[in-house]
């Protein structure tokens, strides 16, 4: 066996090992992406299904995000819709109430700059971009309080922009919503 033959052999071995590793790498990636896609479709939350716009500077005048319409609304199908506005530098309502073990739909927007909508201890986490409506479904399995900070820099008062989400029993929510179109907590 000449020296060149040996070199060529070695190069072939190297190439074979490379190929195996490349195949393994691709397999790892396919498995990971597949797992993510499967979990997304069957187990967990999904990205917002539709893009909706809204005129940010007039949300307080008409439409869904007027002041009287903000807060939690009990829907005929038993679910709850929570409408909120994030603005420099507070959320309205500042304290949101939702019943436990009930499908909840958060709908929110921003009239000024980009804000973040993050309920700590849950995977409710979305952006509020002026001009668009953000929608995110949730279901709370335990009663209790959650902090809700704005998670996107929105100006000098950003560090003071914290709200709360109160998860109450279904009975308590019914009591609160009796006679009220919209429910929010004041504390």
């Amino acid at each position: 066996m000449t020296v060149e033959d040996h070199d060529i052999d070695a190069a072939r071995v190297a190439e074979r090992v490379e190929r195996r590793w490349a195949t393994l790498s691709i397999a790892i990636i396919v498995v990971l992406a597949g797992a993510a896609a499967f979990a997304g479709i069957h187990k967990a939350t999904m990205p917002q299904a539709r893009v909706e716009t809204v005129e940010p500077q007039t949300i307080h005048l008409s439409g869904e995000f007027t002041e009287a319409n903000l807060g939690s609304a009990a829907e005929p199908d038993g679910s709850v819709t929570v409408r909120a506005v994030g603005q420099q530098y507070s959320f309205t309502p500042q304290c949101m109430v939702v019943p436990v073990d009930t499908p909840v739909l958060f709908r929110a927007t921003s009239p000024d700059v980009v804000h973040g909508f993050l309920i700590q201890g849950t995977n409710v986490n979305t952006m509020l971009v002026p001009g668009y409506v953000s929608q995110i479904p949730a279901r709370f399995s335990r009663t209790g309080d959650h902090l809700m900070p704005c998670q996107e820099f929105c100006g000098v008062g950003h560090e003071g922009m914290w709200a709360k989400v109160k998860v109450v029993t279904r009975d308590e929510f019914l009591r609160m919503s009796a006679g009220n179109r919209r429910v929010a907590c004041v504390d």
Binding site: I29, A33, A36, P47, V51, L128, V129, Y132, S134
Partner: peptide
């Protein structure tokens, strides 16, 4: 922009898959 309301879910899905690819 996964959490952004101005981007369609389909494009988020495509970008997510291509992000996995960049690990290669």
């Amino acid at each position: 922009t996964f959490a952004d309301p101005q981007v369609g879910a389909g494009f988020k899905f495509i970008h997510s898959a291509f992000t996995a690819l960049v690990a290669l």
